[in-house]
Computed example of a mutant assay.
Amino acid sequence: MTDRRTLRQNQGPSATRIIGVGSFQPERIVTNDDLSKIMETDDQWIRDRVGIVERRFADKDELLVDMAVKAGTAALIDSGVDPSEVDTVIVPNCTMPSGIPNAAAQVADRIGIKAPGAFDLNAACAGFCYGLGVASDLIRAGSAGKVLVIGAEKLTDSVDPTDRANAIIFADGAGAVLVGPSDTPGIGPVTWGSAGDLVDTISMRDHRYIHQEGQAVFRWATTQIAPIALKALELAGLEPSDVDVLIPHQANLRIVESIAKKLRAKGAREDMDVADDIRYSGNTSSASIPLALDHMRKTGRAKTGDVVLAIGFGAGLSYAGQAFICP
């Protein structure tokens, strides 16, 4: 006799892909020379240490939610998908002013997405890759149809403007992708993890300002992240030589270049295009990877069909990455 209480489970499509990309940055450009007027630093010192030339700062009344709405709307326009077709919204971030209400429900409503599943995700600078992995799995499990993932940060609210080590790095912005079903795999499996024993290397000072042990984070990122990127390729059935575009989290240009060098030592091509969005966008945490992707598409550095390898890492310490096909 069949137990009538046996539960059903959804079954979704076998594959997913990114079908739209969008981004937004505030209008205010802050150069290294601008920062030198309020702290002891100069243009060359900043370029030598982190590779940043300029970054974007939001105005005081320009909120994280505002930037997320603009990036998410841009991704929908790029995809040609109507908001009514989206049933889930994920907003990776670590800088919402308060835990309640979350950003996702507000963002969805303002974009015109009615009654979606909506939640924020905090994995700091690894947040976008976490969100992309969750979105893909939700669709394949049959729990969602189309998912809008928006990495958005207003980091200037969380940085002491007189703290030279951090004030030169962080900036504001948002980047988004729309994820949907696909006949062929367009997003590889996520590889993720954390190093909780190093949690104190990036934290909030006085529950207000970001504090990081710069050298410790640098050593961790330059030694531990490349193997994680290689694992993401292995899970996707790819070789380093298959990668057309590498987009690490834009934390520090020296870290980005170190990861690329290690991947090339394992077989990645010399003509692999490596994101360097940090030069003109700064470190935008969970927004940095989709921002870089959108900028690289618009300038032709990332083309439709390219194999992209993304890898995020940051506070937690958390990390995540996956390969995907550029839309």
Rank of each mutant, 00 (worst) to 15 (best):
A287H: 05
I311H: 05
D276V: 15
T222I: 14
I210Q: 03
Q215S: 12
T184H: 12
T304I: 08
S258G: 00
S288W: 01
G214M: 03
T184Q: 14
L178N: 10
L238K: 15
A292E: 06
M296F: 07
L238H: 13
K262F: 01
G237I: 04
E213H: 09
R301P: 06
R205H: 13
M296H: 06
S288A: 06
K262N: 12
E239V: 10
W220P: 00
A236Y: 07
L238I: 09
R205W: 04
D306V: 06
G237S: 07
D244C: 00
L233N: 07
L309I: 11
K262V: 02
E239C: 12
Y209L: 03
K262E: 14
P189Y: 02
V307A: 13
A195F: 12
H207P: 00
R301H: 13
R205T: 00
Y280H: 15
F313K: 06
S281Y: 11
K303H: 04
V243D: 02
G186W: 11
H249M: 01
L309N: 08
T304D: 14
V179H: 04
A268N: 09
T184V: 14
P181V: 07
R279E: 15
A236S: 15
I202G: 03
L233G: 10
A310K: 02
Q212H: 05
D183T: 14
Q224N: 14
P248T: 01
T191N: 14
D206S: 12
S194I: 01
I289K: 02
I225K: 00
G175I: 08
D306L: 05
T284D: 04
G300P: 11
K266P: 00
V177N: 03
A268K: 06
D197C: 05
M272W: 10
A302E: 01
Y280R: 15
Q215I: 11
S286F: 10
G267S: 08
D200S: 15
I255N: 06
A221Y: 06
T299C: 13
R269G: 11
H207C: 06
V179K: 04
S281N: 15
S203F: 01
H249Q: 10
L246T: 01
A216L: 13
H249I: 03
D277P: 00
L238R: 15
K298T: 12
L198C: 05
L238S: 10
R264P: 05
A275K: 10
R264T: 01
D200I: 02
L233D: 04
V177F: 07
R208L: 13
R269L: 14
D197A: 12
H207D: 15
D172I: 09
G175R: 08
I255W: 01
A268H: 06
T222E: 04
I278N: 08
A176K: 04
A310N: 04
R269V: 08
L233M: 15
K266Q: 15
L309T: 07
K303T: 13
D244V: 00
A287M: 01
T223L: 04
I228R: 14
H211D: 11
P185E: 06
G186K: 09
K231G: 12
P227H: 07
R279D: 03
R264E: 02
F218T: 04
G282N: 12
T222L: 05
